[in-house]
């Protein structure tokens, strides 16, 4: 790791516990140290409930750390949001039901109080494969289409930090691959610090510079792996033996109990 550029996003010995209604508290994260360099693409893998979304929400400024510190460019995460420089695609899409697809994707412009760039909205609609659905309401879309609309919305303001929480979870394999390739293309044209939470080892390796493997109860970082494949990555990289070896290694890391056998 070169320390020449300071980290764009830093989590320093962060822990997070939630107080439950019955008075007890649950520790979701413990001792998280994580840095993302400017323009770096980091993927987070881990079993369900290990705290991946919580890491993302801390960086988004939606939760505050119980101990430790979360900084973006040395400042509080909320400042990035206030400057309209943050793009988030949530696990449950969070589209507004009373707006059409195009209006949902244009919402960040309206919230930021800037003029809507209709050409860009249309270009993103095409990019995520929703041409012909620009005037449809979210209730008329499938789960995967809603996710794609929410990715377009996260990208529309051309953010500096992009947080994606299992954005391709509801997509079929072919659409998912297509979205992966498109995301890599966008990502290669500009400096975009990205955190991607995913359950797909393939996707993580194909897209990321670095992969964080987490374990649960409490959530910790188990491993960090740097992805060696040069960019731009062609989908053919997915068929190389090196790729398969890495998939096997990470899949094993995700099942520590079996690995110990």
């Amino acid at each position: 790791m070169t320390q020449a550029t300071p980290d764009a996003i830093r989590l320093d010995s962060v822990s997070k516990s939630f107080r439950l209604d019955d008075g007890n508290s649950v520790t979701a994260l413990e001792g998280i140290d994580l840095g993302l360099r400017e323009g770096e693409f980091v993927a987070v893998l881990g079993p369900s409930g290990c705290g991946k979304s919580t890491v993302l929400r801390l960086i988004a400024g939606l939760e505050s750390a119980s101990t430790g510190e979360v900084r973006i460019e040395g400042r509080a995460p909320s400042q990035l949001a206030a400057a309209h420089r943050l793009g988030v695609a949530f696990q449950d899409h969070a589209l507004l039901p009373w707006l059409s697809v195009a209006q949902n994707i244009a919402l960040p412009y309206r919230v930021a109080g800037t003029k809507v760039d209709n050409a860009r909205v249309d270009a993103l609609i095409e990019l995520v494969g929703l041409t012909g659905f620009r005037d449809a309401r979210p209730s008329q879309l499938s789960g995967g289409m809603r996710q794609r609309a929410s990715i377009a919305r996260a990208l529309v303001l051309d953010p500096d930090v992009l947080l994606l929480d299992e954005p391709f979870g509801a997509l079929d394999a072919v659409t998912r691959r297509h979205m992966n390739v498109e995301l890599q293309r966008i990502w290669s044209t500009r400096t975009l610090t990205t955190l991607l939470v995913t359950h797909s080892v393939d996707e993580a390796i194909f897209l990321a510079d670095r992969i964080i493997v987490m374990t649960g109860r409490p959530g910790r970082i188990l491993r960090e792996v740097t992805v060696p494949f040069p960019r731009p990555r062609d989908p053919s990289v997915l068929r190389t033996p090196e790729f398969h070896a890495m998939v096997d290694e990470l899949t094993l890391a995700l099942e520590p109990e079996e690995a110990a056998l």
Binding site: G61, A83, L86, L96, W98, L107, V111, A112, G113, L163
Partner: peptide
């Protein structure tokens, strides 16, 4: 107002009045 929508508006850096008009009122 749904918690997920409120989260979205926070990450978009919405000011209170904007959030009121575009989210809470609808």
């Amino acid at each position: 107002t749904k918690a997920a929508h409120a989260d979205l508006f926070r990450t978009l850096g919405a000011r209170p009045l904007t959030a009121f008009w575009r989210l809470e009122l609808p």
